[in-house]
Design a binder for these strands. Structure first.
Lengths: 245, 245
DNA sequence: CGCAACCTTGATTCTGATCAATAAAGGTGG
DNA sequence: CCACCTTTATTGATCAGAATCAAGGTTGCG
């Protein structure tokens, strides 16, 4: 890993040298353009499990690309209810909700020790107006988030508990597989309660539904270790709601 | 209303002369910048009630700003379930889901006779790279949509039927009031079924809940004509879920 | 005017929430 | 490294809210 030493103690990692460039911000950029993107990035930041990347209400200045690790985002209501709005893994972008209003509207929490790349938004805007392909790519990332949210709405508004859980497992499976991990054998980084919050279910329902899936022989559940034994069955279960995956 | 006559039959309406400029795309632009935005707009288009502005799967080329009228957007699943993902009124932007993928991922349908301004996306990108304030404003619009979606997730994942309906009525009330209409006396443009789909409820539940609100004296319901008699009560009901409104 | 779409209301069912008890895992400090 | 404590997960029993099924009424369009 190449690191540039700036101002003595800070180290900067480069997009142009990152294994995630096929998934993350630099998608579709040529070498020269990628160098401009390197100039956008401020520095990388490490977080311990449980640490907040930012909290709702804090001033917004930067987007963050997950480099390693795993995050959740949550929106909270004053009366304590909170809703997990997303789980984020490497190459995914956190913080786009802060652009309008210049204030973060959700919390972002590391669910395991993680590292993020900080992309100051002013730099990104400036680079975008020079680089049409970066510009376009960033529009697409925001649009993709809107489409993802539509899928979650479909899931929360229309699907039954078992369909929600099947869609959830298939979604994780797909994204892990995109990153070169096993599609059907993985560790959940989030608790049953967090899964439930994301899916609009109580943790007991998540637990029961996983147990039922296991009894049917569709998955093997060992605490947080999940093996999908019959992905086709899960796919059948959400057939007709492809959008939600 | 000033209209420019281009190519004989087409007429073009101008942002610089539109009463919605405080709510719509031109927010924060000066006169010169607004002229550039006028150049972005292709033409306006009229739709009859029930007509589709676009359908899921069609190629994406333009965003649409609602000029007059009322729209819904829906995502459909093959098995017929469909989820209303939004209701849009004047000054609001439709189609941002199409940017990633260059394909519309939802249907947009006029719920009354309507008129939209067509903003070809390539024009918008081009104008954005010249006009930083337009650029920034467009980022903010996309971000606002993401934040709105988070609110809907909170609503669908955590709230009870009566809270959802209260949040829905208050949201409509707020947006109508922003447009200079009465906040507490309005006509619903959508059916009970469409409200239910948006809120993750069945139409019978919407109907029953409205009846209960009326019995309690909080609202007066006459078919599609709604009068909010005690907005404070509705507000109390969703207190602690401000985000969802 | 007649039909179709939409709405209301009631009776019943069912899914998932709640309440509760126990078990297992993971982290902490001695 | 182990004992303890906290957090997390599983499972069962019961309950409640919303869905479903059903019937009748209203509106408005062709």
């Amino acid at each position: 890993m190449i690191t540039l030493h700036k101002q003595g103690e800070m180290t900067q990692k480069l997009c142009s040298n990152c294994s995630l460039h096929a998934l993350c911000m630099p998608v579709g950029l040529n070498g020269e353009e990628m160098a401009d993107l390197d100039a956008v990035m401020k520095q990388s930041r490490r977080l311990k499990k449980g640490e907040y990347l930012f909290r709702s209400g804090e001033p917004f200045a930067s987007l963050f690309a997950v480099r390693t690790g795993f995050f959740k985002t949550t929106v909270a209501s004053q009366d304590g209810r909170d809703q997990v709005t997303g789980f984020l893994m490497s190459g995914e972008l956190i913080g786009m909700d802060g652009i309008c209003g210049q204030i973060h509207s959700c919390d972002a929490v590391a669910l395991e020790d993680s590292e993020v790349c900080e992309l100051p938004f002013v730099n990104l805007e400036e680079a975008g107006s020079k680089l049409p392909s970066l510009q376009t790519h960033f529009y697409k990332l925001m649009s993709r988030e809107i489409v993802r949210d539509q899928g979650v709405m479909l899931l929360l508004g229309n699907m039954r508990a078992e369909e929600r859980l099947a869609a959830f497992l298939l979604n994780l499976s797909q994204r892990l597989s995109d990153r070169g991990f096993a599609a059907n054998d993985f560790i959940l980084r989030m608790s049953r309660e967090e899964i439930g919050s994301y899916l609009g279910l109580k943790l007991e329902t998540v637990s029961r539904t996983l147990s039922r899936f296991q009894q049917e022989g569709w998955v093997k559940v060992e605490h947080k270790h999940i093996r999908i034994l019959q992905p086709e069955v899960l796919k059948t279960m959400v057939a007709g709601c492809e959008h939600a995956i």
